[in-house]
Design a binder for these strands. Sequence first.
DNA 1: ATTGGCTATCTTGGATCCAAGAATGGCTAC
DNA 2: GTAGCCATTCTTGGATCCAAGATAGCCAAT
Lengths: 241, 241
Amino acid sequence: MSTLSTKADDIARALEDEIVSGAIAPGAVLRQESLSERFDVSRTPVREALRRLAALGLVSFEPNRGVRVRSITAHELREAFLVRAELEALATEIATPKMTPADLAELDAIERRFGELTLELRGHARSQAPRDAGLFVEWMQANYAFHDVIYRVADVPLVERIAKSARRTFLGDRVWSARAELDELYAKNDLQHRAIRETIAAGSASAARALAREHVLSSSRLIEVVLETLGAAGREPGWGG
Amino acid sequence: MSTLSTKADDIARALEDEIVSGAIAPGAVLRQESLSERFDVSRTPVREALRRLAALGLVSFEPNRGVRVRSITAHELREAFLVRAELEALATEIATPKMTPADLAELDAIERRFGELTLELRGHARSQAPRDAGLFVEWMQANYAFHDVIYRVADVPLVERIAKSARRTFLGDRVWSARAELDELYAKNDLQHRAIRETIAAGSASAARALAREHVLSSSRLIEVVLETLGAAGREPGWGG
DNA sequence: ATTGGCTATCTTGGATCCAAGAATGGCTAC
DNA sequence: GTAGCCATTCTTGGATCCAAGATAGCCAAT
């Protein structure tokens, strides 16, 4: 059997997902032993996976003490958004003159779907419906899909990689409990996507850049408001846990 | 004895330096066994170090075949400069309103030193002096020092980290053999630094941003010319090597 | 002579083993 | 009763060991 991936890689990916999705809380301490029995491997590939996560900045090693999931400060979060704003703006500018009619059509389709989901979500938000997690995930995916088309057309893998790693410097879904505050985000995102698409279609690269930048920055501002609303709710498990 | 760093970390740092400096050629295959005896450790910490380098994008694992130092394409190099341009521009804009007179004085001192080195280097370049490697390194350090002041004032560690990792996506010193072509770079860099400093001193954040961006982009264009001049000189050692 | 296949060797990926540093809990002295 | 010290236990960092995949060299058959 030809192993196309190594166990360390698989474990790294799995842990990465859990960390960025918030399934593993920031500040949590990762024990090599428990991870190794959970993935049913020895500690060796686990440690290699942890090394990778450390290089990505997701966890930090403390020699002879273990690894802990890095928690992100408000300052870092703001920076991550700034980086995303610049890089997504750059990608948008590069993509604009390369857009084919087919690409524009794809953007349009995603936009339409995104609009539907937005309406639905806003309805749920108002009615305080108990269970819209799946819907929210779908909305999120449509949101990312829009940007992914732009990255694909721009053909800037390095920019894309960095921007996405900044994108994932995110908080768990606990942020999304602030439904009311997010209502504004839903609507704004929708409008901004439309505006960006129109500007791209018109071929104004620099205008599209500016819109893309403002798009990311405005969600940054909103997220900050949400965080303030939630307060410093991030409990940080200590070493004893 | 309290080990403040782990062997894997030390090895990773050492290899990182050698790779970015070009001491280890792109395309080279790294054997775990030889590395382990070179650093006088077992293969375990070596592999952890390699995992870190892989996460940083400096090497790539091919399962059951080994690790190879990633070679950079012209496209990737251009992208790295684009990323640097955006992020250094951002940092400059953020730093501008935060600049104290002391910071400006420091910038000025570095600039002056930079100017001297530039003059010296240009003289050497014209006379085809045989040995100015040390001088060039000094020039490079002064160049980076200028930008480092800006980063320090801007206080954006994430932006700084990403920009610097893009900065290091560089070629070995073989690029710098193209003396004649670099003459232009020397002069231009000097002028641009002065302009940036003046604009920062004047407090025009957005103008400083634009200048910083153009500064990086112009060196990008120049490097491309140099690369064309050198031709596709990158020989790529195969697996057999 | 060349090509195909087989075997021997090399290297990696992973498991297990060992030593050293850090937390914990109990004991003693005040 | 409390504070400090020492031993026990736990966990990590690193070394060694083993199996599986990959490369290379050799031989045979056409």
